[in-house]
Design a protein around this nucleic acid. Structure first.
Lengths: 140, 140
DNA sequence: TTTCGTGCAAACCCTTTGCATTTGC
DNA sequence: GCAAATGCAAAGGGTTTGCACGAAA
């Protein structure tokens, strides 16, 4: 499991420069309760540091993805949300009616992952999967 | 199970006007081998009918979604693909490395669907789910 | 005839890119 | 000092919208 500051530490270990922008973006992702969008990271950094460009946010996210330090999840909102890779995986039940998002433990999908690997030779990347449908309330 | 021309028939049953554009768009979706994008529908209609606007395609797709006559699947390409709702469901294993798409029988996911319903009261909409990961070839 | 649907053009949103400037190491 | 990173502004792709015209019922 990763620690706070992990993103920044690994960046530096791998020879990437520790700019103030990267420090702030890394912190924003790690301090977010779970899933943060590029626009939200940008707003958060601007509020404290007042000097960063949205393109830098996207470029940093690109880098962090490549280094497997963040994962993305598409909740079908027309934008992607980011999550620190070390914070444990979980999945999401997204209600298409009321928008409610329920967390789902990783274990629920392990048997699916196994079947796909065994029968199709396919190693599914099931970190932060979003499953759409209707929640209890909206099913009535 | 639906028949060819089903989309158009249901539109008319529900009091929507049968314009040439809607006829052509409905046919394009029903004749597509599986998953067709808005842009592809547009190109196909233009080729035969030479009179349709991309915004009409989007407005029609919006309508067909609302009436549950088509479903959409996101293959992570930055655009959504459409499928006639009546043509039977199947799922897709999308390789993030080589882009290969393998079809997956609906039955593989029925147990997942059951668990979600039983334990979370969540009725998952698992028609045309796309699961990302790595195919056999790219896993080596 | 009257309401619904379309074409057109512009706007929208999120994301990416080229290039000159700045900055970490 | 020099490569790497940033800011800026513009472009890109897919999708949506306002409004006047045209056509289905």
């Amino acid at each position: 499991m990763n620690q706070p500051g992990d993103i920044v530490r690994k960046l530096s270990e791998q020879g990437y420069r520790l700019t103030p922008q990267r420090l702030m973006i890394g912190a924003a992702i790690e301090n977010s309760d779970g899933h943060i969008s590029a626009e939200e990271i940008y707003a958060q950094v601007i509020a404290k540091y007042s000097q960063v460009n949205i393109s830098t946010v996207y470029r940093t996210l690109e880098l962090l993805k490549r280094l497997h330090l963040v994962t993305e999840t598409d909740f079908g909102e027309g934008r992607v949300r980011y999550h620190p890779a070390g914070k444990g995986h979980h999945h999401h039940l997204v209600c298409q009616e009321c928008g409610a998002i329920t967390d789902l433990d990783e274990s629920v999908l392990t048997s699916l992952k196994d079947v796909l690997l065994r029968e199709y030779g396919f190693s599914a990347d099931l970190r932060h999967l979003a499953i759409f449908g209707r929640c209890v309330k909206c099913s009535k």
